[in-house]
Design a protein around this nucleic acid. Structure first.
Lengths: 213, 213
DNA sequence: TCGTGAATGTAAGCATCGATTACATAATTG
DNA sequence: CAATTATGTAATCGATGCTTACATTCACGA
């Protein structure tokens, strides 16, 4: 019983079975994406990093896209956790302040995890229909922003604006900033990396003060 | 003299030399991108469409990236032409109106040529340093928006805003809308294709009226 | 006019990648 | 302990980017 365990734990004996190859492949893919962008993720390289043959991953993922789908779900979970944490217990601060906190948490994560954000936000890298959690979390975030905007309007904190158009504009602003970061618009435009988050915050302030009464 | 010409024009005689393979490859690549996105562009398929061997393109482009760079320059030229046309002779309409016209022309082209817009806007698909025209046109557009914003401020049409932050917010808004279209956020969110441009215009209006006095 | 060098194409082949198939080994379970 | 299932390897396929060696055509000057 303990014998077989001892045998494998002995020095550099590589067990035929990996243990948790699925998890290792997702982690390797996340690392590859972080290093060279989503396109740098290859099944073979992930297998290489997990110390396994090129065909092994296909026992756990039917295709490269299936691996990316799992990666997207993992990334989306981390993304959502950060946003939830930022908004926890802030209800008393008012909807406009919460809207800004939501935007800042969103941007903060997107700026610091550009490749992972790109994977979940584009849908080009994974099967959107298969990754139900991604869609759900996204819908939740959108619904939350709608709610906060409606609250702000109901409590008379907004100038007379079209709520729907305003919500889309806000989403587009935040998404645009995240995308500009991914697409290297900021360095090309002379913005230092450490300034990016601050500049994004200022842009968000411009928008919010533009709709606030 | 005319003999050789006649010989080749006769029926289905394929000349050894293409005539303008470079041009044909760029056109094929543009078509491939439009059909399946930038990642659908392959050197071999472009060669296939031009009726030429897989190695031939490398006489004109050192790499796939070099082909994409030429594609980007072509696309950027079309993009800029559309914007210039939209702004021609509109100086009398005032800076804020021109700002909106600029944004709408930008969005219009981006929405109708998503793949080509993605190529020029991301820099992941081509060598940004080699495509000087792309950088220059982009810088011009940015400079123009700065100018218009400064004019609006100087003539007292703006609320008291941070001009730099406002300009970045405006860019991010427009870029975000274009990107949401590319990344299929709109259909996923139940927005009909024919409504996209109208919704984008409304979002732009929200922003501009938010900064206007 | 011609012939020679440059330009431009073909053919064949390399490495990498995603993916499949047949087979081998370990883990689990009755 | 035996048999079934899960999970790995090995070998292979077709597509791709890219290179090299060779073939053909074009353009220009003697």
């Amino acid at each position: 019983m303990a014998k077989s365990v001892k045998k494998r734990s002995r020095a550099a004996v590589i067990p035929y079975h990996h243990g948790d190859l699925r998890r290792a492949l997702i982690d390797a893919a996340l690392a590859l994406a972080a290093e060279g962008g989503p396109s740098a993720v290859s099944v073979r390289e992930a297998a290489r990093r997990a110390g396994v043959s090129p065909g092994a991953p296909f026992r756990h993922f039917d295709s490269r896209e299936a691996l990316m789908t799992a990666v997207a779900e993992e990334a989306q979970q981390r993304f959502r956790a950060e946003i939830d944490a930022a908004l926890a217990g802030t209800a008393a601060e008012g909807p406009l302040r919460q809207l800004k906190l939501l935007g800042m948490a969103y941007l903060r994560w997107a700026m610091r995890n550009p490749a992972h954000f790109e994977i979940i936000s584009t849908g080009r890298w994974f099967d959107h229909d298969a990754a139900v959690a991604v869609s759900r979390d996204n819908a939740d975030a959108i619904a939350l922003s709608e709610q906060l905007l409606a609250q702000a309007a109901a409590s008379g904190q907004l100038r007379p604006v079209d709520l729907k158009a305003t919500q889309i504009a806000g989403r587009a602003l935040v998404y645009g900033l995240a995308r500009m970061n991914i697409d290297r618009h900021f360095p090309r435009w002379g913005v230092q990396p450490e300034q990016v988050e601050r500049i994004a915050e200022q842009a968000l302030d411009v928008f919010i003060s533009g709709i606030a009464k």
